[in-house]
Every structure is written in C-alpha cells, then in structure tokens.
C-alpha cells in the first residue's frame, strides 16, 4: 500500500498523516513536495493534509490547488485513484474542483478545536467499507473555515446522489443544528465525488489512530482503506 502526502508551504498536519499512515498503519508513505510534478510510481492513495497552505491567501486552498503536484493528483483521481483530503486538504480539493462546494468561515467566527461525533452516511466507499451505515465515531476537528456551503440546487443534487459521507451528530447519532459545530449546511462533515474515489472531510481521522496519543475513533477510515487495498 503506497501513500503520497503532498506538502505545501504552510501544511502542518503532514506529519500527522505520515505518522498515521506510515508509523501506525505501516504503509509505505512518501512525503511529496508541492513543486514535484509527479506522484511516486504506484501511488494508491493521495492524502492531502491539513494546515494553512500558502497562508490561506486569497481563499483557503485556492493557491495550493494550482501547485504543480496538483495536476498529477487530478490525473490520479481521474484514473480512479483514491484521494483523501482532510481539513485544509478538503478545502484544496474543493478549490481544485475535485469536489463540489466551498468551506466558509465558521458561523461562530471562531477557530474551533473539539472532539466531535460523526455519523457514517455511506458505508460502501473505499474510505468507509469497514464501518456500518449509521455508525457513530469520534474524531477531533480544528478549523476556522469548515462551514460547508453549496448552491441550494447543488446541495439537493449532492444529497440525492449520496454524496454525503459523514455528518456531524450527537454521541447517540442524532442529527440536528445543535450538533453542527461550524454551521455546515445539512451538518455535512465529509463528502465524496460522484465516482466515490475522492473524499474530503473537515475532521481529522489521522489524529485519532494511535492509542498512545488518545482515542482511536479515526481508525475506521484507515481500516476501510486497508480493506479497499486488499481487494484492489
């Protein structure tokens, strides 16, 4: 299993991604500088990490979406390769038009770091196949711009095609505005593209995989990926 982690100036969750995939999961995980034009040979998963790429200039993720390596990430995605974008990585994938929508400033205006609960909406994806639909898991969030927004008509389309992978919920799995930390439309925490091979999410599963560091609610995503690779 080979994972590429593109690193931009201002990425700061790259080491979390490298630790989770490389040290904890034991996958062949390779950091890739943003100026590179090719992903490593036989890359199976591209993990676009969180942070503040290019200082969030213009819009979060807008400049990173233009980085040389992103052309090859798009090629990888277009050929069916898996792409996971977390936090700023999600913002970058939206700006690169690999995913629909945009992440606006949190409704509260504040940077929020907290443990949140997510409900699995799609359990048939390479990112969720080891989980069950309706399952609730706990992962941390840490962002100021996580307020997922889409044109109303596109939001209806996204929901209708099952584009929502994860939704914020209560510990018991209840959905509702009270459980949405950032104002995201329909409580959306993570979405997938039409083909189901590109997933973006604001919460950080890679920060919840190592029992030495705390809870391991994020493991479901990585166990799913392991299964997907075993069956590829």
């Amino acid at each position: 299993m080979r994972v590429a982690v593109p690193i931009f100036p201002g990425s700061n969750c790259d080491h979390d991604a490298l630790h989770a995939c490389g040290t904890v999961l034991g996958w062949d995980t390779i950091p890739v500088w943003h100026q590179e034009t090719r992903l490593p040979e036989n890359t199976e998963l591209v993990f676009v990490p969180g942070g503040f790429s290019y200082g969030d200039y213009l819009r979060c993720g807008a400049i990173a979406a233009l980085a040389p390596i992103m052309a090859d990430v798009k090629r990888h995605a277009d050929s069916g390769g898996l792409v996971l974008g977390v936090c700023n990585g999600f913002q970058i994938l939206c700006e690169a038009h690999l995913l629909p929508g945009a992440l606006l400033r949190n409704e509260s205006l504040r940077f929020i770091h907290a443990d949140v609960h997510l409900r699995v909406e799609r359990a048939d994806l390479p990112f969720t196949r080891a989980m069950k639909a309706g399952e609730v898991f706990q992962v941390p969030i840490a962002h100021a711009e996580g307020n997922f927004t889409l044109d109303p008509a596109d939001l209806v389309d996204l929901e209708a095609r099952g584009g929502v992978a994860f939704r914020y919920c209560s510990r018991a799995g209840e959905i509702g505005a009270a459980h949405v930390p950032n104002g995201a439309m329909n409580g959306i925490a993570g979405i997938v593209n039409l083909r189901g091979n590109v997933l973006g999410m604001m919460p950080h599963p890679e920060r919840a995989v190592d029992p030495k560091l705390g809870p391991t609610g994020g493991l479901g995503v990585f166990r799913s990926l392991a299964e997907a690779f075993a069956h590829a």
Binding site: R105, E107, S108, L109, N147
Partner: peptide
C-alpha cells in the same frame, strides 16, 4: 445569502 461572519462582527 452567503453568511458573512466578518461583516457581522
């Protein structure tokens, strides 16, 4: 229609 928290502040 797009929330502008900065404007609100």
């Amino acid at each position: 229609g797009i929330l502008d928290p900065q404007g609100k502040a």
